[in-house]
Design a protein around this nucleic acid. Structure first.
Lengths: 220, 220
DNA sequence: TGTACATCAGTGAACGCGCGTTCACTGATGTAC
DNA sequence: TGTACATCAGTGAACGCGCGTTCACTGATGTAC
């Protein structure tokens, strides 16, 4: 709101509004039937428009999905970034873990769009890599601050020589890199099993498992 | 092969063969385009038959998918069971981890059918629960043998009171239950990220991360 | 061994559906003089 | 302020496609006497 750098004509403004509404309906549809069942015609009908009208706003179905995926990545990255701003300084691992969990539970289908089964013939846009790098940077900040030597051997040596993914932190010790990866993979492990329903009927609280994994990470 | 308890007429035999061939083609199709794109007509065409012919073998599309999911669960459970028989006695955690990884990499789409994004309107048959219990039993055997007290606090207390899922091992210490869950969630965490392609371009070897996670589990 | 009947695999046509996408067109909104 | 023109949102018809599934039917395979 307020003064954006560019002057915005009413038409451009309207275009953006409609685009947003389309995406909104798309999310609702994904929530109901998954990403592979996303239908442009159905969205149009829901908006009280004819099918072809949407082609004024998105070149085709793939472009819409790409946009949704990009937004999903963005929302997680923003949540990570906000965790730092809110806490005053750098967020701790526990705070990031909390953010990740809230984000995932808030909208499981959004989570699956990013971390679930890859969409059939679809390849994500390249700029998601940059967004992931943003998140990794925040995560690595927390890891560098949290960790000071653990000594686990072979894998950390491997990481010392394979740290492309940690380009934002060229001086982080291998132990911190290892911690970051453990954070990422272990928490996603709990979440993906939980969201896919693999804990239902087991009679345990996934939130407690999640908390215990966070504790194990930070206890180091 | 050899003498099965039931007498099998040639017709029954043939039926089974065709059913198997249908499932085989179904897997190939899933490998190409994912489970939600599975088409009976396409399978029939691939087998040189007309579409409706398949309805002699499967009541409908859902029954076929159910069968595939059941088979997927079965194959993993069998691999777990075989790990024990091959090693002479009870398999260790490292052996089970190896089996899980091999099974997942052998056919990623099969993995996703079980542990990936849930299929849209679909609910898995109830007997998969029994198969999961089988696997959990093998896993818990290994955990009971491996672990003797770690002391982590709150979560293990929670597990002491919420152990329905470990019904096969009513006397396992909470530390072993906790280890079993860590095994399951952490390894699935690495695998799901790896199989969904989230390590590509990061310049590290997911197999090493996997190995390090196994080591961290067994080092206790 | 041969005939009469039942079983069952597989076919082809058809139904109804929804999909993504293209195209020629109408009407409203904005722009230039 | 008014007119002439360009831009662009949205429509409705149409194309071609593949889907799951039903149905009446043919022809081969097995079974009973």
């Amino acid at each position: 709101m307020g003064t954006t750098g560019r002057t915005e004509t009413p038409r451009e403004r309207y275009r953006q509004q409609v685009r947003e509404e389309v995406k909104e309906k798309a999310w609702q549809q994904i929530a109901g039937s998954g990403a592979s069942a996303l239908s442009l015609n159905a969205i149009a009908k829901q908006m009280g428009m004819s099918g072809p009208a949407l082609y004024r706003y998105f070149a085709n179905r793939d472009e819409l999905i790409t946009e949704l995926i990009r937004d999903a990545y963005r929302s997680l990255a923003d949540a990570f970034a906000a965790a730092g701003d809110a806490g005053g300084g750098r967020p701790g691992l526990a705070a990031l873990a909390k953010v990740l969990r809230r984000w995932a539970l808030e909208d499981p289908h959004r989570y699956f769009l990013v971390y679930g089964t890859p969409v059939p013939g679809y390849h994500a846009p390249q700029d998601t890599t940059a967004i992931t790098a943003e998140m990794m940077s925040v995560l690595l900040d927390a890891c560098v601050a949290a960790e000071q030597g653990e000594g686990e051997g072979g894998f950390e040596e491997h990481l010392a020589g394979h740290r492309d993914w940690a380009g934002s932190h060229p001086d982080a010790p291998p132990s911190a890199l290892r911690l970051a990866l453990a954070f990422w993979s272990r928490l996603h492990g709990v979440l993906s099993l939980e969201l896919a329903g693999h804990f239902t009927g087991m009679g345990l609280d996934p939130a407690r498992l999640y908390a215990a994994e966070v504790e194990a990470l930070t206890a180091g």
